[in-house]
Write a protein that binds this DNA or RNA. Structure first.
Lengths: 196, 196
DNA sequence: TTGCATTCCTAACGTTTGTTAGTTACATTC
DNA sequence: GAATGTAACTAACAAACGTTAGGAATGCAA
């Protein structure tokens, strides 16, 4: 069998991780076997272990990467001096775009993180919890400054994060509307509501 | 080992299905083993097969049950002669309550249906698709009658369904707010929006 | 062309998996 | 109390799993 093709100055490990995200998204982490992955990469299962340490390493690379992207973004947003309402919209749009662009990693991270092994599991849990708290804090700031309705901030976070994860179905559908339209629709509904 | 206790005139099979939903929710369908389930039930793994045909039967019983509950509800709502906006609110509240009351089945159905085997997989897919279309049709009716904003109906469905599934996190948290409060918050945000 | 490191292969390992066969214990009915 | 069906057990199966060992092929530098 041929070697793994390395284009665009990406390492073989990166290629394997990419394919793994694809596979995990499709079948779920537990249901995806290393032999499945090997076939996708174009190599025998055992050969993968020249590039990675274990199956669980693949998952934790994916999850950590996604978690860091969101943490970095909220770092950036918190630093800006703009109204809370704008911060929320920016963050929401970031979530939507992440889901539109590299949704495979995001979905896997969202749905399969429970299968992380320690200490990555605890780390991830903590990072996730912290992120949500910071998100909620921004909303609470908006409520305090009368920019938004008096609602439970953590419920609002819950709704937004999970609403965005619904974009997966959008990917599977025949994409009647464009990504840009989807983004505008989601922002409108979540910020301004469904009712007229 | 003792027998499976059958209280409340429920069959042993029903007890197994209930525990299975619990286990599948916790570990995921693939990661949950029949030996795990047996331990939860208080019996040896092989003994389960006196009551069920297979592991996959457990999943399809759970998924079919959930799917039917929602289909029945939308049948009922479509028949009523009330404004579309009200229909949507009723349906949304039904989703929230299902998630609050027997959320284990709903989560498993939502998250693990991909592991159904044929022909149940195709059936489920179809039922799910049809449900969403009917939901979207109600929203479109509301848009036509100027009860709601001009937004993409299927995006709105996406948001609502997935937002509701976020209630799982609520269950895991220390439940700072009550179920009733959560419901009101969710309805407010989704129908009227976050912004003031 | 030789030498060396990388990358792949085949073969196999020890577990865990869902499930079946065959048997024993319990509970209910006559 | 004997008979009968239900529900549990033990033992074991074949298949699939993640992973390792050891050797062959490849690509690169000298």
């Amino acid at each position: 069998m041929g070697r793994i093709k390395t284009e665009n100055n990406s390492t073989r490990k990166e290629i394997i991780v990419e394919k793994a995200a694809n596979l995990f998204k499709e079948k779920g982490f537990k249901a995806a076997s290393m032999r499945d992955l090997a076939e996708l990469v174009g190599v025998e299962a055992a050969s993968l272990y020249n590039h990675i340490k274990s199956k669980s390493e693949l998952l934790h690379v994916i999850c950590l990467d996604v978690a860091n992207r969101f943490t970095n973004k909220i770092d950036e947003i918190e630093a800006e001096e703009i109204p809370a309402k704008e911060k929320i919209e920016i963050l929401l749009r970031f979530h939507i775009r992440e889901m539109l662009n590299h949704y495979e990693d995001v979905i896997v991270s969202d749905r399969e993180w429970k299968h992380l092994s320690e200490p990555y599991l605890s780390n991830f849990r903590h990072q996730r919890k912290t992120y949500r708290k910071r998100f909620a804090a921004i909303i609470e700031e908006g409520i305090k400054k009368k920019e938004m309705k008096k609602i439970d901030a953590s419920t609002a976070v819950l709704i937004m994060l999970h609403a965005v994860s619904g974009i997966e179905s959008f990917h599977r559908s025949k994409q009647k509307i464009s990504g840009k339209e989807l983004e505008e629709n989601m922002v409108t509904i979540l910020i301004n509501g469904l009712a007229k």
